[in-house]
């Protein structure tokens, strides 16, 4: 079965994260979908834009809101061979954040560069 998948077509997948981590369940659901889909050996790109950049903020402490802090899980992505992470500078700027505020290594690009990257994808899922 693994051979079948390896022989299959590798598509360019992009998951676009546009929401904050805890106000809705979207961020966690996308993360779980990405981890599961890692088994299919596709060319995965993860984008964090708009409020999605806040998913990668360092120093989260969720004890007082009674939810699980899943931000550490983004650091596991490397082990799942998902290493193409993109953040746009404009979204960081709007929120008063910089690359140093993020807990994983990402490629910081301009919105124009991100737009080009998006045009190049086979499958795009946004939440």
């Amino acid at each position: 079965m693994e051979e079948d998948m390896e022989a299959g077509v590798v598509k360019k997948f992009m998951y676009v994260n546009r929401k904050q981590p805890y106000g809705t369940v979207y961020a966690l659901e996308v993360l779980e979908m990405v981890l599961i889909s890692a088994a299919f050996d596709q060319d995965v790109h993860l984008v964090f834009t708009d409020d999605g950049v806040l998913q990668l903020k360092k120093g989260m402490d969720t004890a007082a809101i009674g939810m699980k802090n899943f931000s550490k899980t983004y650091r596991a992505l490397e082990g799942y061979d998902i290493e193409k992470l993109y953040v746009d500078q404009e979204s960081l700027d709007e929120r008063g954040l910089s690359e140093d505020d993020l807990l994983v290594d990402v490629q910081v690009v301009s919105r124009a560069e991100m737009a080009k990257l998006m045009d190049d994808m086979d499958v795009i899922l946004t939440a």
Partner: peptide, 11 residues
């Protein structure tokens, strides 16, 4: 403890 998930087998 480090990643807050149980890893997939190949990981």
């Amino acid at each position: 403890n480090e990643y807050q998930i149980a890893p997939a087998i190949r990981v």
